[in-house]
Structure formats: structure tokens, C-alpha cells
């Protein structure tokens, strides 16, 4: 409804039934939140060097954008090494933000 009230062109709002629901939601979000989502995309492209043992996913949670990180370690040395690598990633992130 907000998109209609925002005078979004009707052809942009015509939804092709062949397109998966997930993509439709993505498209509508892009129309309603263009500036924020463009900025999220830009941040996503500034890839950081994460520790090799981690699974990292950039995501938006409400008003915050960030990384969801999973990692597994099997010993204290590996944990120390991973933390060091995280610190490097944090430095890299800080430098990108400035």
C-alpha cells in the first residue's frame, strides 16, 4: 500500500507469478527501502578477511546491518589463532568504515 501511495509505477508493482515469492519480497523491499538496501549491498561488497574456519553471512536484522558468524574450533591454539584473525578482520572493518 505504501508503494502505491508513494506513486510507484504500476508496471513495477505487477508481480509475475512465475517469480518465486522470495524474489518478489526482495523486489518490493528494494522499492520501499532503496537507499538502505543499496548501502547494505555496498557494505556486503567490502569483503573482509575472515578466519578460514568461519561461516559468515551478511544480514539485516531490523534497524541493524551486520554479520552472522559461525565457527568451530577443536583446541585452544586454534581458538587463539581464530581470535587473532578476527582481530585483523575487525581492524580491516574499522578502516573501511573511516
Amino acid at each position: 500500500m505504501e508503494l502505491i501511495l508513494l506513486n510507484t509505477k504500476s508496471e513495477e508493482l505487477i508481480l509475475d507469478q512465475q517469480i518465486p515469492a522470495e524474489d518478489i519480497i526482495k523486489k518490493l523491499k528494494l522499492l520501499r527501502y532503496p537507499k538502505t538496501l543499496a548501502s547494505d549491498e555496498e557494505k556486503k561488497n567490502n569483503s573482509l578477511l575472515w578466519p578460514t574456519s568461519t561461516q559468515v553471512q551478511a544480514q539485516r536484522r531490523g534497524d541493524r546491518w551486520g554479520y552472522n558468524i559461525h565457527f568451530f574450533v577443536s583446541g585452544p591454539q586454534e581458538l587463539t589463532k581464530t581470535i587473532e584473525q578476527f582481530q585483523k578482520a575487525a581492524e580491516q572493518w574499522k578502516n573501511q568504515s573511516h
Binding site: 508513494l6 537507499k35 531490523g62 534497524d63 546491518w65
Partner: peptide, 20 residues
């Protein structure tokens, strides 16, 4: 009304945290 607002912790709608 046209602002890009998102639900925040506590329930209120706010601008993106980094924009704030």
C-alpha cells in the same frame, strides 16, 4: 511517512543504525 524505517530493539521504528 516516506522514510526508510526499520523495527528496532524495543519495538520502535528507527532509521538504520549506521545512518543514525
Amino acid at each position: 511517512t516516506s522514510a526508510e524505517m526499520f523495527p528496532s530493539e524495543g519495538g520502535k521504528y528507527r532509521y538504520d543504525a549506521s545512518l543514525r
